[in-house]
Computed example of a mutant assay.
Amino acid sequence: MKRLKIAIQKSGRLHEASLQMLAKAGIRVDNGNDRLKVAVKNFPIEILYLRNGDIPHYLADGTIDAAIIGENVLIEQDLQQSIVQRLNFSKCRLSIAIPNELTYNGIKSLEGKKIATSYPKTVHNFLTQKNIKAELHQLNGSVEIAPNMGMADAIVDIVSTGNTLFKNNLKEVEQVLTSEAVLSISPKLSPKLQDIVEKLLFRLRAVLQAKNTKYILLNAPNDKVPLIINDLPGMKSPTVLPLAEKGWSSIHSVIHEETFWEVIDQLKKKGAEGILICPIEKMVL
């Protein structure tokens, strides 16, 4: 049986989150005894645990068919065209940071400075767009220590919470790009595997749709129903069911997470009562 070879980080911030995403999509991965390659029993894929920095090369040459990887890593390797789905986890940003005691007067402050980073191509492209000439020093780890050791005037590194910068007496002054986990497909993917990719995307998108929405149930007087359903478009349109109490209806629909509280406020003003919000495990459109 043909299997899609998909890579995830062997270790690091994307490792557990990637496995959790696959699990929500009904793909059970048994790691066994620290194996680096695992054939999934209930879906035609094979998981390979690889070093983060190696994954783009394996994608480019077709050694692996797909990967769950940080968008920033693909951008550094100029492989962002291979992204087929953003996965809405492990969000971060690539940012410029300088020592707290230094004054930052905009991007021109970096002219002629030494900058340490693990993302030299991305930083070079960013500075070129800004017409800034700086001296880049590539480091593969512990970038934050570079200014304290006199190796650099600034750094460019991945920032999630900012705690690491704070601990190293650094402050974030400029954002280069934002990033999140993505599903990437090899440009050399065999057409015979495309059907498996589509099935995987179908499952992942069902999980993502559910994550971003809530199921809502409420009661309302019948004369208020037309006003209320204007705020509840749902997947096609809200479901309206009569209650045992005459003159009242139950309305069922779906609302988006980002507009949740605004919608609830509007519904209450328009006469909604007994509002119940439920999580959605999967949503198939």
Rank of each mutant, 00 (worst) to 15 (best):
H124R: 12
I69F: 04
M283E: 05
V225P: 04
Q175A: 06
L79R: 05
V240C: 02
L14I: 09
I27S: 05
G162C: 09
T178F: 03
D61W: 01
E258N: 15
L19D: 00
Q9T: 04
V284N: 10
I145W: 08
A154W: 11
K41A: 14
P147R: 08
I264N: 13
R13W: 04
K24L: 15
G247N: 08
H15D: 01
I47V: 11
R51T: 02
K171P: 15
D223W: 01
S95H: 04
N230R: 15
G141Q: 08
M283P: 00
Y49Q: 00
L4M: 05
K269P: 10
V73M: 12
E71N: 07
T259S: 10
S118H: 07
S109A: 04
E101G: 12
E245L: 14
D195K: 12
C92L: 13
Y104K: 05
Q129R: 15
E258F: 14
L193D: 07
Q138V: 06
D157G: 12
E273N: 11
Q209W: 08
V263H: 00
T161Q: 11
I132P: 07
F202M: 06
M21I: 04
G274P: 08
I229P: 00
K91D: 03
K121S: 05
M1T: 07
L241C: 07
R35N: 06
I185H: 00
N212D: 10
K108Q: 11
F43H: 02
V73R: 05
E245P: 09
A39W: 04
L177Q: 12
K41E: 09
I83Y: 06
G150H: 07
F126N: 12
Q81F: 03
N230A: 12
K188E: 13
T103G: 02
A146Y: 04
K270L: 14
T117E: 00
V240H: 03
N140I: 07
P279Y: 03
C278D: 06
V284S: 15
N219L: 08
K121G: 00
A134R: 01
L267F: 09
W261I: 14
S160K: 15
I96K: 01
A66L: 03
E198K: 14
H256W: 06
K133P: 00
N169L: 12
L110T: 02
T117S: 03
I107V: 14
K282L: 15
I107D: 02
T213G: 01
R3K: 15
P56A: 04
V40Q: 11
K269S: 11
Q85H: 09
L201I: 14
K270H: 12
E257G: 01
L201H: 07
V143G: 02
E71L: 11
V263C: 12
P226H: 01
K214V: 10
F43K: 04
E16K: 14
R205V: 13
I216N: 08
F202T: 09
K24C: 10
L50S: 02
E135T: 10
P233N: 08
E262V: 06
K171G: 11
L139H: 08
N169G: 09
A134I: 00
K91R: 11
E281V: 11
S118T: 10
K108A: 13
T239M: 10
G62Y: 06
L94D: 07
R93Y: 02
I196M: 13
G274C: 10
K37F: 07
L177F: 02
I185M: 01
L165K: 05
D231S: 03
N33R: 00
